[in-house]
Design a protein around this nucleic acid. Structure first.
Lengths: 183, 183
DNA sequence: GCTCAGTATATCGGCGCGATACATCGTGCG
DNA sequence: CGCACGATGTATCGCGCCGATATACTGAGC
């Protein structure tokens, strides 16, 4: 997931770890964060894989650089990196239904193909509906022996699943409307 | 977290990995699951730490055992394991405010001391309120440049934070009422 | 001159996951 | 009767990510 997000953000501009993490915070905003303990090793991994390369000291152009310190490692996408991101964007597999995968992918939704968007949205809906049904079942079977606090948690979870399904239905309807328009 | 849940469940009865995982599913129900890839190594770890021990082949009593196959490793709590669980129950630290930690701890809330329950609930509320404020800020500053889908996600997140804060307030009020009663 | 917050990179141990492997048992179906 | 299948049962491997920790330089305020 981090890989996906990094590749997506580097499309905007070359960046070094520190600002990358800030952009990560902003665009994934309040819903998912990544620690430096994941970021730096992942950057290494992407570099080794050839998806990104380190920009060298040049690039004295735009940036005013009032500093003399080096140390910042600025990375930029390679052609292979762009391909890789396109592949990940087009993936509508199971990991894009779960909380984490869905949330991150959604942050790059305007760049993902319309049909893929649809499949992700529907997959997510199926996932949340399953959760909702599971919670409904647990609650109906619960009245007796189940712990009061657990029951409360289930109630909250059920409500939130229901709300998310409604939210997904709206998004899906909107997508369909858009698709109709473009016909 | 897995450690906590295992120790808590083994209070009911000695169990082997497979049924432990089922009980895990039931009591954490729909909101958190653990894979065998975590469970078995964790069981080892707890054994090494001395919190649990493997019951030996005896125990030919209650269980009818229509099978001749061995292989099942039945674990039971040690005195140190019970102490360990009590310590974890009494912990109201930061990890008990986050989604995962909070959810798991809640499953054992009826066994946690009332004052600890209160501190966890309040800590969680603070956490969710921060998230809520973050999302509100993001949404108000958003209208312009932010991606439509991200905004939708923020909307959903905001609603769900608001809902959870209300839910927490109810729980907290209930706790306070209970505390008044016992005075 | 000092301290403090922000900028910047990096590593370490540990937790949990998904994939995979392997073996046994009971049930149902042809 | 045989055999496939689903449930029972334990285990390992590599990997992604986290929190803690270390290090060091810069700019602002006092």
């Amino acid at each position: 997931m981090l890989e996906f997000a990094i590749l997506g953000l580097l499309h905007e501009a070359p960046m070094h770890g520190y600002v990358l993490r800030k952009r990560l915070h902003e665009t994934l905003g309040m819903f998912r964060t990544f620690s430096y303990g994941s970021l730096y090793p992942t950057l290494r991994r992407l570099q080794r894989a050839g998806w990104i390369v380190e920009e060298d000291a040049e690039s004295a152009d735009t940036e005013s650089r009032t500093w003399g310190r080096r140390a910042r490692r600025v990375y930029k996408l390679t052609a292979e990196g762009k391909e890789r991101f396109a592949d990940l964007l087009a993936d509508a597999g199971p990991q894009t239904w779960d909380d984490e995968g869905f949330g991150v992918h959604l942050a790059f939704f305007s760049r993902t193909p319309a049909d893929v968007r649809m499949r992700i949205l529907e997959g997510r809906r199926r996932r949340v509906e399953e959760r909702r049904e599971g919670l409904r079942a647990a609650l109906s079977r619960a009245e007796e022996r189940i712990d009061r606090y657990t029951r409360e948690l289930h109630r909250l979870g059920l409500e939130s699943s229901e709300r998310e399904v409604r939210w997904l239905n709206e998004l899906i309807a909107h997508e369909q409307a858009e698709q109709r328009d473009s016909d």
